[in-house]
Design a protein around this nucleic acid. Structure first.
Lengths: 190, 190
DNA sequence: CCTACCGATCGGTAGG
DNA sequence: CCTACCGATCGGTAGG
């Protein structure tokens, strides 16, 4: 264990915020997690809130990178939807701490700081909306309200970390196919 | 404002826990919310954790009452599913504080106290599972894994409080129909 | 990154 | 239900 970096602190904070919540984690807990005193954390950051902001931003950027890749793929809308879904599942499973902090701890940011993740969330959802619209225009999907459809799809995707374990009887690929199936069923034209 | 009752305290705690989280709410905050000093709360309860337990239990019982009514109705499985869905939506919208506390603050119960809401949750989910099984046996639904189908359906239903406002362009009845439609589409036989 | 510390606040209690 | 208080812990700072 070499010297502790800012990045180590952000990682550790993700773990603790996800598990105990922002208000359930003290600077001393965090120091202990990285092998420092609580007060020594202030050599790396200016405040506890700054750490929360950074963990959340990390989660948001992971989601956006996934969406950017899906939208850039030279494939049809139904295939883009599959990429969005499997990409989201990968982010949720591989970066569970940042995702949980993004989902459940953003509300503890100061009001003026909350605008950023809210906007990031909206941009990310827009990727889903655009694919539903594209799919409808190409005649692949039924024409449903893309706003509601995106919200319902993301409701399923965000809840995954609350019940799915990678080592269960269902593997990640099967999970993805179930969710793709469930979602696409509602988009099918009769 | 007559004298403060235990029930007033549980109600106020639901409001504060939902908004600020369990660890973000102090006994002094809670006292202030009901017009007492923080220390005076201890005339009504034994600990802060006891209050959390009670708020969560209130939420769990509201959900179960809805499920019991749906299962008892003398109707077909597809209609029971609609009752389960609209009942869940009503509980989420009419008792948002207890629901949010149930969903997001249960993890702050001591390990041995967490077993109760977990079991309540499982019993409630079992109502959904049984309706999916009944529907498949009656030939109304495609035969899908009832465990996964229940989880995906409840993922959508529990997320409602995160985005739906009763005064938006979509009213509650329309919301219910969208969700019933989205869910049933995946259950339809070709 | 530690030592040494700050004022504020925490959950909770004794005694009336 | 308040007064008066407990020891513990909170986020954070000065100075090295």
């Amino acid at each position: 264990m070499a010297t502790v970096t800012r990045s180590d602190i952000i990682d550790a904070a993700g773990r603790l915020f996800a598990e105990r919540g922002y208000h359930g984690t003290s600077m001393r807990d965090l120091g202990n997690e990285v092998g420092l005193l609580g007060s020594s954390i202030y050599s790396h950051v200016n405040s506890k809130a700054e750490i929360l902001t950074e963990v959340i931003d990390k989660g948001a950027k992971l989601f956006q990178a996934s969406a950017d890749a899906a939208l850039a793929a030279p494939v049809s809308a139904p295939e883009k939807l599959e990429l969005l879904i499997s990409g989201h599942i990968d982010v949720v499973m591989d970066h569970a701490n940042e995702v949980k902090t993004f989902l459940y701890e953003s509300r503890f940011l100061a009001a003026d700081q909350r605008a950023v993740p809210l906007e990031q969330r909206n941009t990310y959802e827009a990727a889903f909306r655009s694919v539903f619209v594209q799919g409808a225009e190409a005649g692949d999907f039924k024409r449903l309200d893309p706003v509601i459809t995106s919200i319902l799809t993301l409701s399923i995707l965000n809840a995954i970390e609350r019940w799915f374990r990678d080592d269960g009887r269902l593997d990640r690929g099967e999970l993805t196919q179930r969710i793709v199936g469930f979602t696409k069923a509602s988009l099918e034209k009769e």
